[in-house]
Amino acid sequence: MSLATLDAATLYGLMGAVLVGIGLYGIVLHDVFIRRLLAFNLLGGGVFILFGVIARRGAGAGFPGDPVPQALVITGVVVAFCATALAITLIERLAAKDEASDGDDHS
């Protein structure tokens, strides 16, 4: 093992590491669901970028990056979107329910 050369892959790898930390911080410290969801997606973006760095370093056989992790990230981005869409709908439904029960309290 030796220290990585400072190239684009290393730089974006460090960026991905920082993004994971920022996202985790937001997940732990936010009370509002939508903000937690945003922070969760920030973290996810960082994890995906780390995959991209592994792919870039695995460049070979005439490809600019290892296609296997890249394909996994494409799958991951789509699944993350689906989970986000479901979570947003849950949050909206919860808010509508809270609003309805608040209305009952005042009547």
Binding site: M1, G13, L14, A17, L50, R57, G58, G60, A61
Partner: peptide, 27 residues
């Protein structure tokens, strides 16, 4: 959280050589 970032950064800065890759099999 900074500690977790630092651990990930260490993984980035100390990569495996040779880098793991399936590029040749795909080709």
């Amino acid at each position: 959280c900074a500690a977790i970032s630092a651990a990930l950064a260490a993984v980035v800065l100390l990569p495996m050589t040779p880098a793991p890759s399936l590029a040749i099999e795909v080709r």
